[in-house]
């Protein structure tokens, strides 16, 4: 799984929208699309312990990414279905397209850990993984060990990569960008928040996901390598050992599920990303016409 990468990619998607969509795709759509896969599945991955009883999944990685399990939440199919349902309900192009792009970003970037995602669900339930770092969510280790493993592996590089992508498009984080590109795509939502917050609070709210991603990256990395005192192979260490080798870190057993050959994952993932952008580009104008038609109908007096 990815950690802060999911926060940064919201802004990366926003900054790399096709030209004709700029200022017209909902930021909240992208945010919720990126957020929904883990919102639907992750609570039971770590579970909760009350007294001596642990409530949660028996096999966290199977629950999170597999079938049977909640792995379908990390598929393009689920993103398309939820986006289509929202479109049929509201006919809101800005939110629908944003949601689909955010959802696709999440599902596609999660192919990097050793479990991966079911990219072609429901055609096949086999997982697609690049095995870049170890999927490390376990019942015994919980969130702490998961974080330590992630921030001791190429997962850290993944987070930093997405951070750099956003920083290269730093204007996406500015007040000016928020005023000219973000608010026009979501005027009602921002007006609603504006009932309680001054403008500086609204801008902070827009930047808050980036802020959270950056802070959690620094906090978890500092904890894992400076504060924690793990015992590995019977030896107490100052911080978890860093291991930037493929499918690292070495000190944890990478969880995995039946998956396709490693070498076809990257081209297929990129092809699917291209397919999503192509589909969205082709549907953009027809969706706009359908949205306007619905608005005209809604404005007409009944009877």
């Amino acid at each position: 799984m990815s950690w802060a990468a999911h926060q940064f990619e919201v802004y990366a998607v926003q900054a790399h929208l096709p030209k004709r969509m700029r200022g017209k795709v909902s930021f909240w759509g992208i945010f919720l699309g990126d957020f929904t896969p883990d919102f639907l599945s992750k609570f039971w991955v770590y579970g909760i312990t009350i007294g001596d009883t642990h409530y949660g999944s028996d096999v966290p990685h199977q629950w999170h990414r597999g079938w049977p399990g909640m792995g379908f939440t990390h598929t393009l199919f689920a993103g398309v279905v939820i986006a289509a349902m929202f479109w049929l309900w509201k006919r809101n192009r800005a939110f629908t397209v944003g949601f689909l792009l955010g959802y696709a970003a999440h599902a596609l970037t999660d192919v990097n850990d050793s479990v991966g995602t079911m990219l072609l669900f429901p055609i096949t339930t086999i997982n697609w993984t690049l095995e870049t770092w170890a999927y490390a969510a376990t019942i015994e280790g919980g969130k702490y060990l998961d974080a330590a493993a992630y921030y001791s592996s190429l997962g850290l590089v993944m987070d930093v990569f997405w951070l750099v992508v956003v920083l290269c498009s730093w204007r996406v984080l500015t007040r000016e960008y928020w005023r000219t590109q973000i608010v026009p795509a979501d005027p009602h939502v921002w007006a609603w928040f504006g009932r309680w917050l001054p403008e500086r609070g609204l801008v902070a709210l827009y930047q808050a996901t980036f802020f959270y991603g950056l802070c959690r990256l620094i906090a978890w990395t500092t904890w894992a390598h400076v504060v924690a005192r793990p015992v590995i192979d019977g030896v107490e260490r100052i911080g978890y050992p860093m291991d930037l080798s493929w499918t690292g870190p070495f000190w944890i057993g990478a969880r995995t599920l039946p998956h396709v050959d490693l070498w076809i994952v990257a081209p297929v993932t990129l092809a699917l990303l291209g397919a999503v952008y192509f589909a969205v580009s082709r549907l953009w104008e027809p969706m706009g016409r359908a949205e306007h038609a619905k608005r005209r109908r809604d404005r007409q007096p009944v009877g």
Binding site: R200, A204, F211, Y212, W220, W223, V227
Partner: peptide, 20 residues
């Protein structure tokens, strides 16, 4: 030191609260 704070709700609220 208090890792329960490192979640998607507290983080954004923290920034907005401090800035406002």
């Amino acid at each position: 030191w208090h890792k329960w704070m490192l979640n998607w709700f507290v983080g954004p609220v923290w920034l907005v609260a401090v800035v406002v």
